[in-house]
Design a protein around this nucleic acid. Structure first.
Lengths: 335, 335
DNA sequence: GTATACTTTGCAAACGATTGCAAAACAAAT
DNA sequence: ATTTGTTTTGCAATCGTTTGCAAAGTATAC
């Protein structure tokens, strides 16, 4: 690799001038600068970020810790962060936790030694503990809250989205509305569950514990939970189902097929989080769509703002609205 | 941040000993080492990768340049690389190109300055030019070949996969088999097209130019191409369609709906690349599945092997077999 | 021509680790 | 006690930048 000194020699100036030609154009004579840049360009010189970062104490990079890239919703988050970071000339170190707080811990340790300037994290349930590792590093929690007091968070309005969804089902005439929810130690699941409860309460429908099943966030969990809810006598079975995330919605759909239930005739179904297949299925699935890309982009910009402007802001909580999309999987109950 | 010297002072040893306690355990007295590690731990000391990387000339990181994380197939690739890298204690710098070679160029420039030890790239059509930027950096091309002579590549057997798919359609009795292929300046599209041609030739079916449409790799391209192929008189219209990637398959399916064609009665359809919706749709779609995760994992391990063992191998080309999955979207033609 | 201000440059010390070399400490052998 | 060999340590240079400080150069005003 070619370094400052080589450029400096050829350009007949000092190392310092070359450096300044790149970073402080105002401090070097116009003609000199042109010559330096010209030579640097010919040689294919590019400042070594490692050295620069070490000296300046700024690595121009941020960390991104996500639970699972394979979930298309999360892939959107990655893209959003990525794009925002690139726009501001930051690079992104990415890690996966697979929803496992041990992996999260390891990711944080590894990350820390690379001296990122900030971190965007979709916290696991162990994050409140794990995040102590990174000390004073600016952190933004994306999509979920770890529960740490004073944390900066960028999330969607899970409560409102769920309430709207359940309200929609009630409007159609449903009374027995089931819910499949993620594990309640994750903030989004909690909030969605609250939205469900509130919508019921507002309509004067009693909350029935046995209409709510907790699933593991994945397809198999959704399928299992749906089986439990739907394998009942016709007059006990919920006529509508609100499912708390996209993977579990797939499971629930498989369950209806297992049981020979028709959507929406026998069962109306609403999912949380839109996706390719939700549009493509027949009937297409009614969903609460999240602005995932915007969410992530915003989270990243907020972080970089904090870094660059050095704002000493207090805790920020940003909430983006969800978008309710009515498709063909919801209809009035049968009789 | 706390550094070697602080640990050294407290442990009453020199900076060098602390460093060695971490990196060359055999060179330091057992008791001394214990003491140093204990103190380091108490202080929460972790070596600064930036400094270490600068001095040793090894950043313990690799670059990953992918066309588009939003494609679930690519998300798998990301995960595979990620997991393999983490296992070997490397971190991953990730970039998106969105299939745009300008963005690719920028990603490469940005990456270069961060001194990665290697690069895994899913090359755009401009990659042969762009990759000159990184000089002697070890590179592995993933999923596609840039065309650079002597490049190391890890890909699937696109040719064989396509041939099998088309062969399957021929076995069912189809004679007019259309194909929607990606732009031919990408190696995978070429290979898939070759597989199609070969299968036809082997069955003695003449290749008809007007049964092949080139699409832009995305849903809208697939839809448009499918419309062109399918909007013909019944006896001119292909009875089966082989679509060269997953996004375009979605487009083709929408086109059949636009035109009121029944799958598989009016049209059999085979896609390249499996996905969530392919299984979920009714009828479920027959596909050529790719071992994306394994592919990426292998690519990363191959790269890291090259780095660590310092093997001076010549060009490597790894090919993984595809997996043909028959579902309900293919059947014998009508009459 | 001298004083004053402003630009433009270079010197050399950082940033935080690693490592070749040699000194010190210890053990074993004579 | 001296030699020889081995283990353990420390000194100081190094990786490639950036930057505070001061010197040199140039312009402006008197």
């Amino acid at each position: 690799m070619i370094d400052v000194d080589q450029v400096a020699n050829l350009a007949q100036v000092s190392r310092a001038t070359v450096s300044r030609a790149f970073t402080r154009p105002d401090l070097v004579n116009h003609k000199t600068r042109e010559r330096v840049l010209e030579i640097a360009n010919q040689l294919g010189y590019q400042p070594n970020q490692l050295a620069s970062a070490l000296r300046r104490g700024q690595s121009q990079s941020i960390g991104l810790i996500i639970s699972d890239v394979l979930n298309p919703g999360n892939a959107m988050l990655v893209k959003g962060v990525q794009d925002a970071a690139t726009k501001h000339d930051y690079t992104v170190f990415m890690f996966n936790t697979d929803e496992d707080s041990i992996k999260e811990r390891k990711a944080l340790e590894s990350l820390r030694s690379h001296m990122p300037q900030g971190l965007i994290i979709m916290p696991t349930s162990g994050a409140a503990q794990n995040l102590k590792l990174v000390g004073t590093l600016p952190v933004i929690e994306l999509d979920r809250a770890s529960g740490i007091k004073g944390a900066h968070t960028v999330m969607v309005d899970n409560f409102g989205g769920s309430r709207t969804a359940v309200h929609h089902l009630i409007q159609l005439g449903h009374k027995r509305i089931g819910m499949i929810v993620g594990s309640l130690d994750i903030s989004t699941a909690q909030e969605r569950h609250n939205g469900y409860q509130t919508a019921l309460a507002e309509a004067g429908i009693a909350y029935q514990e046995n209409l709510v099943q907790i699933g593991n966030h994945r397809e198999d969990g959704g399928r299992l939970a749906a089986h439990k809810l739907l394998s009942r006598a016709d007059d006990e079975r919920p006529t509508a189902l609100f499912v708390g995330n996209n993977e579990m919605t797939i499971g629930a759909i498989f369950a209806t097929r297992d049981l020979g239930l028709d959507i929406p005739a026998d069962l109306s179904i609403v999912g949380f989080d839109d996706s390719r297949w939700a549009k493509l299925l027949q009937p297409a699935i009614t969903v609460v769509a999240q602005p995932a890309y915007e969410l992530a982009y915003l989270a990243c910009e907020t972080l970089l703002d904090r870094l660059e402007r050095g704002k000493t802001q207090k805790a920020i909580e940003i909430r983006l609205a969800t978008n309710f999309i009515t498709r063909a999987s919801t209809a009035a109950p049968k009789q």
